[in-house]
Nucleic acid binder design. Structure first.
Lengths: 229, 229
DNA sequence: TCTCCTGGTGCTATTATCGCACCTCAAGTG
DNA sequence: CACTTGAGGTGCGATAATAGCACCAGGAGA
């Protein structure tokens, strides 16, 4: 279902990554034969690939003969944007506590927006559970739109982007999840290029005036905190 | 330095993963030539590999021509032990709040222990920053020792393991980090096999009686919460 | 017992990969 | 300004790694 990419430069690596993603997509574990069928490769090929992946702890073989994702992947993801993320975490925490909503840091990847850090408020009983690694089109939802705010105006862009550019933040309601309200602001890098966006998600309408000032302040802190790198 | 593994089943995949890890190890970004030198492969090989990795969003090419880790890796790590992790998070949060120390969930990978979830207390000014994905020998530190508690007695095991088996938890002091005190308990799976350990890390001596009961209770909750899977 | 499906393993034809030569471009350097 | 040096990027052939076959072993179920 994912990865209908026709071909890649390195076939073996490509197959290996597809195997890895197949394993990741099935938390309950997959056998060699199943993996081969899902990925569309020969059983023995999958076998070898899994061996290599196992050596790197990217997958691990359970006693039931099923492969599951291994601890190596979190070691990798650790260092992704560790600068941005570690800098962002305290600000996200403050943001979450102050607004009582789920705060998140989202970056751009191609045509998608991907959340890379989420902090949920501790003092609120019910809140939006926003997952780290959640991927969605950048043109949908406040988090994505905020990143587009940081870019120079594009022909054919959504009206919300053009409108939000003056305000400095983007707001959305129910675009990614019905009932969820979002408000995000862009974080630009040293050269003014869009890097990411910070924002909050709540289960109901947000006080735009109060929330936006908090979000904008967090975005500003992040921008200044990362401009030394 | 890492990965002195002589050979793996699939050479191309192996090289690709090495490239990925090399990129991960240098958050400031690496050029093609540098990557090739670090990994020990030809420049053009690295080039192709990076192309494939880029297609899968595992790495991304910045405007400065440097490759950095891409968002795809967090998507992968999302689903690692998502059952255990999502179940554990609220318990870790409780543990962190109750003890005022950093709570963590650690799993076994070969001869190493790897932390896969960490919750830091919110109401304490200074606390131990324990990183997700931190890897260390399983025979060092309370987190690793606790996992060994869950296993059947091994010849030559550390005295602390044998001693701790009666109490049901392991404690250590300054093994991984001088000044850090740890206390962990094993989480066993349905078949009694060691799955992981939960514990806390603090900057000073822990009240063993009070802390251990909290940690043991968290471990018990986890054990029961995961036995349906 | 027999069958069927699974995991696992040598082995060779074939195919993907490696590494060379080559090009472009930008930054130093005389 | 010409020259050098080092970077990224690309086409192509020989070679080496891989794909897929045949085959073995074991467990579940009929």
């Amino acid at each position: 279902m994912p990865d209908d990419t026709p071909a890649a430069g390195a076939k073996t690596l490509d197959n290996g990554i597809r195997v890895l993603k197949a394993v990741a997509a099935h938390p309950q574990g997959l056998g060699v034969t199943e993996i081969a069928r899902v990925v569309g490769i020969h059983r023995t090929v999958a076998y070898r690939l899994l061996g290599t992946l196992t050596q790197h702890s990217l997958v691990s073989l359970g006693k039931d003969g099923h492969y599951r994702l291994g601890p190596g992947v979190v070691e990798l993801s650790m260092s992704l944007r560790s600068d941005l993320r570690s800098v962002a975490r305290p600000h996200l925490r403050d943001l979450a506590e102050a607004t009582g909503a789920t705060a998140h840091l989202t970056i751009l990847d191609g045509q998608d927006a991907v959340s890379i850090a989420v902090v949920e408020p501790g003092n609120v009983g019910v809140h939006v559970a926003y997952r780290v690694g959640f991927r969605h089109p950048v043109t949908v939802g406040a988090a994505g739109l905020a990143i587009l705010l940081g870019r120079s105006p594009q022909p054919g862009e959504r009206a919300e982007v053009t409108a939000g550019r003056g305000r400095g933040f983007a707001a959305s309601q129910g675009e990614l999840q019905s009932g969820a309200w979002g408000l995000s602001a862009p974080v630009t890098g040293v050269d003014g290029e869009p890097v990411a966006s910070v924002g909050v998600i709540a289960l109901g309408p947000l006080d735009e005036a109060a929330t936006s000032s908090l979000v904008l302040r967090a975005a500003d802190c992040l921008r200044r905190a990362t401009e030394f790198t």
